[in-house]
């Protein structure tokens, strides 16, 4: 496994996983349970300003990895460390909104749950509305939104509230082409900044364009971790096996 070729590898670490394993009992039907082993002895370190791409097939454990990084879940084994005081936002599709609330209220609530005061959160709302291009729908309940509109709202809220660590689960692959382009542009813009990003994506070209480093997860283990180009090469070769 090659080491990260990320230029800022000397920068301070923001997130670290050490020997993390995770599994959970899933309820299938009444009284029937199954054990899912999601991650198995995963270690990763992510530095300030780094953009890490996570590659892997469906069910490889990518979403669970992001939830562990966000501190939403605790690992069964190993440790998850996050720089104290660093704000962190997890962006996933569909979930995470209160469907009966308007886009505006959801954005306000999201910002406040990430630690912003009411006043600070209200100050972000204008930018969020503009960036999301939701127009009058911003005042409508999120339940009336299409998947693309929801992802636009989620992405805009996370990007405009300027959290230190942004964890993105597939959201960039939704929305229309114009918005995707804009989202990619603002992400590229942030690459030079201080924001640390972990991006889960199925799209290899997206990882190639946005990420410094990448990790390939397969069967709950890290198959490769290092410079994005190297990992993508290995992933491409592995996928055609």
């Amino acid at each position: 496994m090659s080491r990260p070729a990320f230029a800022g590898a000397a920068a301070e670490p923001m997130l670290e996983l050490q020997g993390v394993s995770h599994s959970y009992h899933a309820r299938r039907a009444n009284f029937e349970r199954g054990l899912h082993r999601v991650l198995d002895d995963v270690s990763l370190r992510i530095h300030r300003g780094e953009t890490l791409g996570i590659l892997g097939r469906n069910g490889a454990g990518k979403t669970t990895l992001l939830r562990l990084l966000a501190g939403v879940l605790a690992p069964r084994a190993g440790t998850v460390w996050r720089r104290p005081g660093a704000s962190c936002s997890l962006l996933t599709l569909g979930l995470g909104f209160q469907p009966q609330l308007s886009g505006r209220d959801n954005a306000l609530l999201s910002a406040m749950l990430q630690g912003a005061t009411r006043r600070q959160a209200q100050a972000f709302l204008g930018e969020i509305r503009d960036f999301s291009e939701l127009g009058p729908s911003f005042e409508e309940p999120v339940a009336t939104y299409s998947a693309g509109m929801r992802s636009r709202l989620g992405f805009s809220t996370a990007i405009m509230t300027r959290v230190d660590i942004l964890l993105i689960d597939e959201v960039l692959s939704v929305g229309d082409a114009a918005f995707r382009k804009k989202a990619r542009a603002v992400m590229e813009d942030r690459l030079t900044g201080d924001q640390t990003v972990v991006l889960v994506s199925h799209q290899e070209d997206q990882v190639a364009a946005l990420c410094d480093t990448a990790a390939w997860i397969d069967g709950g283990r890290i198959r490769a971790h290092g410079a994005a180009g190297d990992v993508l090469g290995a992933y491409g070769a592995g996928a055609t096996d």
């Binding site: 939830r67 966000a70 939403v72 997890l90 979930l95 995470g96 909104f97 209160q98």
Partner: peptide
Amino acid sequence: ASKGLIGKVDV
């Protein structure tokens, strides 16, 4: 009922 939010942020 708030599992959507709970899956996103540690509050």
